[in-house]
Structure formats: structure tokens, C-alpha cells
């Protein structure tokens, strides 16, 4: 790919101080190029080809055209997976962003011990979702779970959080928002600390109160951070898997199956490689479409300094 490039580079520019840099570049980039070809960019193309086949890995793949996509469109479990993933995204992304923005504003000050308080908010980010979901499964447990115990002190009857089809997705959302707050808070804090103090001073001189300063100075200057956390949360939420795997043991119900679980189940439990690849492509297209729309929207509300 870059081998001829290196030669052309050398000949084209006729030696000079840059001669041979193309060759060095090839050496430095060899692992990356191999990775792109066999592990990321190449496989994406392969997924298209595989999605047009029926392939159980035991027999040779059978070309079936767009059958897999047609089947997906009428597969109730896949449609439920799409609906649940959409619900998860629509609820968890705004909720997580609003709460973390509020917390970042509160945490953006110098008091003794603030570092310890911040650590408390960051800690869930670094812990594995599998271990954390196990703890939440126990918190949500119908028998002696912490949540039901807590609600009992207010006279609220115990709920079956994880087996009630209305409550289970909100329960998963709450756990995920709790775990993800730290990431957003860190990005917001970085954004807040980049706001020039003079701007706030100037606003104060002009008689702007706390709320006016927030609304007219802080918030507009923070829109790049808000946009950024939005992109990350959006992409991340389409990929929800670990929480669902642990919290809806032994296997996700109609109320909890998500797109990635659907891919996992078809690809690696039922070994329907073509079908799983088709579902992967649908996921990819959804993520791409939403990310593009979101990026297009930024002219309207994101202010870059």
C-alpha cells in the first residue's frame, strides 16, 4: 500500500533531505497497516460479504443475497432489541448529561477536600461493568435487596425490579447513568476550567447575577464540551451489553434484549454468522446516521471560541 508510495516519494522528490523517509514510515506503520487490514477496516468490508451469506462455520457459506436483512425486518426479537436500545439511548443519554453537568458545576470550586469528593464520583468509571452490575443485581434483589429495604421504610411495597418488564429497563438505565457520570463530569470540568475568568468578571461588572452569568456566559462556552459528551454517550449507549448480560440472567427477556446482545447471541451462541453480520451492519448504519445528524446539528448550537 505504501511501498510503491515510498519509491515514488524518493524518485519524485529526487533525494534531498527527505529521501528514504517513506521507507522509515513504512517500517513504523507496518503494525498499524496490518491491523487495519486484518482487524478493523478489512473486517468491516468482510462483514458486508458475510451478511449476504448463510454460514454456520461447519459447512461452506451459502450466498443468500439480502435474505438476512429481510429476515431481520420481520424478526420480533430483533425489533425488540432495536426498541430497547432506542429506549436506553433516549433516556440514559440526556439524563446522564444533565446530572453530570449539574455536578460538574458544583464540583468546579476550590474547597478543601474537593479532590476526595471528586474521586467518589469518578470511581465507578474505572470498575468493571460486570462486577458493578453484580452489585446492582443484589441492590435490586426482590428479597432483601437494598432498594426494596430502603423503600420499605417509606411503606412502599417491594418490587421485582429485574423481572418486571416495565421496571427492568429503567433499572438498567439508573445503574448505567450512575456508572457513567464520572466521565462526563471530567469533560465538563475541563470545559469549565477553560472559561476565561475575565469573561465572568466582565459579566459581573455589567450586573449579571449567578443565573444570568450561567445562562449567557458559562453555558454557551460549554457547548463544545456538551457536544463532545453527547457524541461519546450516544455511541456508547448503542453498544450496551455487559449490564444486560448480568442483570437479565439467565438470558435477556423481550424487555431487555439489546442490539449488541442480539449480535452476540446469533453469532456466538447460534453460530449464524451471516445473520449476526447483517445485524452488525444495521447497528453500524444506525450509529453512523445518528452521529452524522448530531454532527450536522452542531452549527446551530455549538459555539467554538
Amino acid at each position: 500500500m505504501t511501498a510503491p508510495a515510498a519509491n515514488r516519494n524518493r524518485r519524485g522528490r529526487g533525494g534531498g533531505p527527505l529521501s528514504g523517509e517513506g521507507r522509515w514510515a513504512l517500517l513504523f506503520l507496518a503494525p498499524t497497516i496490518l491491523g487495519l487490514v486484518v482487524l478493523s477496516a478489512g473486517p468491516i468490508l468482510a462483514t458486508i460479504a458475510i451478511s449476504l451469506t448463510k454460514w454456520d462455520l461447519l459447512r461452506a457459506p451459502q450466498l443468500v443475497g439480502l435474505d438476512n436483512f429481510v429476515d431481520l425486518a420481520s424478526d420480533d426479537r430483533f425489533l425488540l432489541a432495536l426498541r430497547n436500545t432506542a429506549f436506553y439511548t433516549v433516556v440514559s443519554v440526556p439524563l446522564g448529561m444533565v446530572i453530570s453537568l449539574g455536578l460538574a458545576l458544583a464540583l468546579n470550586q476550590t474547597i478543601r477536600g474537593i479532590a476526595w469528593i471528586r474521586t467518589a464520583y469518578f470511581l465507578p468509571v474505572v470498575t468493571s461493568t460486570i462486577a458493578i452490575a453484580l452489585v446492582w443485581q443484589w441492590i435490586y434483589s426482590p428479597d432483601s435487596g437494598l432498594l426494596n429495604q430502603f423503600l420499605a421504610t417509606f411503606g412502599i411495597a417491594p418490587q421485582r425490579w429485574l423481572s418486571n418488564s416495565t421496571l427492568v429497563m429503567p433499572a438498567i438505565v439508573v445503574m448505567s447513568v450512575w456508572q457513567g457520570l464520572g466521565t462526563n463530569i471530567i469533560i465538563f470540568l475541563a470545559g469549565l476550567q477553560a472559561i476565561p475568568g475575565e469573561l465572568l468578571d466582565a459579566a459581573s461588572v455589567d450586573g449579571a447575577g449567578r443565573w444570568a452569568r450561567f445562562r449567557n456566559v458559562v453555558l454557551p462556552l460549554l457547548t463544545p464540551s456538551i457536544f463532545f459528551t453527547g457524541v461519546l454517550s450516544l455511541i456508547d449507549s448503542f453498544q450496551v451489553f455487559d449490564q444486560v448480560f448480568v442483570l437479565s440472567r439467565p438470558r435477556p427477556t423481550d424487555a431487555t434484549i439489546t442490539v449488541v446482545y442480539f449480535i452476540y447471541e446469533n453469532g456466538f451462541k447460534f453460530f449464524k454468522m451471516g445473520y449476526a453480520s447483517a445485524a452488525s451492519w444495521v447497528l453500524f448504519v444506525i450509529v453512523a446516521v445518528f452521529t452524522t445528524i448530531y454532527f450536522r446539528s452542531q452549527n446551530r448550537w455549538v459555539h467554538y471560541q
Binding site: 482487524l39 477496516a41 468491516i44 462483514t47 458475510i50 448503542f238 453498544q239 453500524f284 453512523a288
Partner: peptide, 20 residues
């Protein structure tokens, strides 16, 4: 090209990587 792979959910390549 390398950066473009950043936005692709890694689950999309699970199947081809497994086959590889």
C-alpha cells in the same frame, strides 16, 4: 482511515475477527 475506525462500534467486526 485510521481515525474513521474510531467511530465504528467494535461489535461490527466481532464476527469477521472470530472467523479470522
Amino acid at each position: 482511515l485510521l481515525l474513521a475506525t474510531l467511530i465504528i462500534p467494535f461489535q461490527v467486526v466481532l464476527v469477521p475477527n472470530f472467523i479470522l
